[in-house]
Structure formats: C-alpha cells, structure tokens
Amino acid sequence: MTLLRDEGLTAEELAVWRMLQRAQVRITRRLEAELLVAHDLPLASYEVLMQLAEAPGRRLRMNDLADRVLLSRSGLTRLIDRLQRDGLVTREACADDARGLYAVLTDGGAARLADATPTYLRGIRTQFLDMLGSGEIAQIRAMLARLDAPAPGGSSAPGGAAP
C-alpha cells in the first residue's frame, strides 16, 4: 500500500500498532465491565480513588491527579463532581494557592475502593497476566519502559507533564 510506504511504515509495523491499541481497549473494557457489575464503579473512578489512596494524606492537587489518571483537567473536574456527589471524595482549597484545589479521599471512598480492589486485581490477573508466559512480564515491562520514556524534546505526555 502506497500510504504505508509514504509514511515509512510496513504493514507489519502498522499491524503491531493496531494490535496494541485493540488489546489495551479490550482489556480495559472488560475490566471496567467487571467493576461496574460488581461495584457500580467505572474504571476511571477506581483509578482516581486508587491514586488518592496511595497519596500522602489521601489527597492530591487536581492538576497532579489529572496527570496521573491521564484525564484532561475538565474531564477530571466532571469525574470529581460525580465522586463528590457520591461521598467518595471531597475538595479542599490549597493554602498556598488560592486557585488550587485538592481532591481528598473520604472514608467512604476508601471503603468503596477496598471493596472493589479484589475485582480490579482479579481482572488484571485474568485479562492480562494469565495470558503471559514466564519471562514475558519482564520483557513487556522493558518494552513499555522504553515507550514510556520522555520523548525527544523532553516531554512524555501531552502538555509536558509526566503521567
């Protein structure tokens, strides 16, 4: 195909790229479906709660949280609105920045996260890890580490923020 040659891609290279995209979407869709059925918790919400639980004081600045969960600032704001309505997070003003806000995990959010975590971990096991042979996890980790490295020019994510 002329388009592939014009852009310097082989059919195999394009096929690998598409396989990576399909695998990621398939795995995350199944994982989200399991979380929704068992806990009425979308995957993005689980990821936000998990990031907050792992943060010092169970709180993160909204900008930092958006970078960690790979959401736009506006997308995170809408998600935090829903989580706040459900009593899973609260917002707190930053003492050192009048415009800044923290997202804070509530006790209810921590309990919901604890309930959902076995489902999440089981999903990772069955949808991903069980498909790999011994030694392949280390290989995949090495390959993904190269892909996750900062791009030439210094940034590893849109907007220059590291995930």
Rank of each mutant, 00 (worst) to 15 (best):
S155C: 11
S45V: 04
L129G: 03
A142Q: 14
A161K: 03
G135N: 08
A142M: 04
A162W: 00
Q139Y: 04
A161N: 07
A103F: 01
V104A: 10
A38L: 13
Q84M: 13
S45C: 11
S155F: 11
A15Y: 06
G123A: 14
Y102W: 14
G123Q: 03
A145F: 08
L79H: 06
A55G: 08
L105D: 04
V104D: 02
D148I: 02
Q51R: 15
N63A: 14
R59D: 00
A66E: 05
L105G: 08
G57F: 08
D40W: 01
P158Y: 10
L49K: 09
I80P: 07
L9E: 07
P152F: 09
M143P: 10
V48Y: 02
Q21Y: 10
P56I: 02
P163Y: 07
A15S: 11
G135F: 00
M1F: 06
L4C: 09
L20G: 12
A110E: 15
G153W: 00
P152T: 04
L132Q: 07
L129Q: 08
E47G: 08
L70E: 09
L65G: 05
I124M: 15
A161M: 06
T126M: 09
A110Y: 05
G160C: 00
D96C: 01
A114C: 07
Q84K: 15
E92N: 06
G160E: 03
A149W: 09
T90A: 13
L36Q: 14
R5F: 04
L147G: 15
L14D: 09
R59G: 02
H39L: 01
R29Y: 11
R30Q: 14
N63W: 02
D6R: 13
G153C: 04
L129T: 12
R29W: 01
L83N: 00
A44F: 05
N63D: 13
A98I: 03
S45N: 10
S74A: 10
E136H: 12
R61E: 08
A142H: 11
L113P: 08
G75A: 04
E92G: 10
T90F: 08
N63P: 02
A145Y: 06
